[in-house]
C-alpha cells in the first residue's frame, strides 16, 4: 500500500513539475494554482520519507562515503530547490497572491531566481530518479506487472485442465 502511495505521489509530482515547466503553454493561471496546490503533495512526499531522513541524519557521519549519503544530500537540495521555486514564484505571482489580497514587493531578480531554480530542480529530480531507479523499477513491476502475473498463475490450472481435455 505504501509503495503504491509513494509511487503515485512521485508520478503526480513529476507530472505537475513537467506541466509547470512551460507556463507559456499552460497559462499563468493554471501554472500558479497548480504549483501552489502541489506544495501539499510535496510535503506529503517528504513526510512519507521522514523515517528514512531521520535515520540517515542520525547516522550521516558513521559511514560517510555511501551512496545513500549522496541521496540524502540530493533530497535536501531538492527540498531547498522546491522551496526556492515557491518563494520566487510567489514573489512574481500575477494570479494567486493578488487573488488572496497579498502584494509582495517584487524585484527583477526574482524572475531569474525562479528560472534558475526551476532548471536546477529539474536536474536534481533527474539525479534523484537515477539514484532511486531500483526502487522505481521495483514499484513499477509490483503495481503494473505483478497483478497480471498473479492472474496468469491463478488461471493456469484451468488452462492445463482445458489442454488436458
Amino acid at each position: 500500500m505504501k509503495i503504491k502511495l509513494n509511487f503515485w505521489i512521485d508520478v503526480a509530482i513529476l507530472c505537475i513539475f513537467l506541466v509547470a515547466m512551460e507556463p507559456g503553454a499552460s497559462g499563468v493561471f493554471i501554472h500558479e494554482w497548480l504549483t501552489t496546490s502541489a506544495v501539499a503533495i510535496l510535503i506529503v512526499h517528504f513526510v512519507l520519507h521522514w523515517e528514512w531522513f531521520m535515520t540517515l541524519t542520525a547516522r550521516f557521519f558513521v559511514k560517510l562515503w555511501h551512496s545513500s549519503r549522496l541521496n540524502y544530500l540530493l533530497s535536501i537540495a531538492l527540498f531547498l530547490g522546491f522551496a526556492t521555486l515557491m518563494v520566487s514564484g510567489f514573489a512574481i505571482s500575477e494570479k494567486v497572491l493578488p487573488t488572496l489580497g497579498v502584494e509582495l514587493a517584487g524585484r527583477g531578480a526574482w524572475k531569474r531566481i525562479h528560472d534558475l531554480s526551476a532548471n536546477l530542480t529539474l536536474l536534481i529530480i533527474a539525479l534523484h530518479i537515477g539514484l532511486r531507479w531500483e526502487w522505481v523499477w521495483a514499484a513499477f513491476k509490483k503495481i503494473f506487472v505483478a497483478p497480471f502475473v498473479k492472474e496468469r498463475k491463478a488461471d493456469s490450472p484451468v488452462l492445463i485442465e482445458e489442454d488436458g481435455l
Binding site: 513537467l18 506541466v19 507559456g24 529539474l122 530518479i129 531507479w133
Partner: peptide
Amino acid sequence: RMDEINIGRLLRSMAKNLILISILACFT
C-alpha cells in the same frame, strides 16, 4: 506567458523535459 492553454506546445515541452530527465537519469 499567456492565459490560454496551448495543448500542443504543452505536450511538446513535457516530452522535451521528460527526455532530458530520462537522459540524465540514465547517466546517473
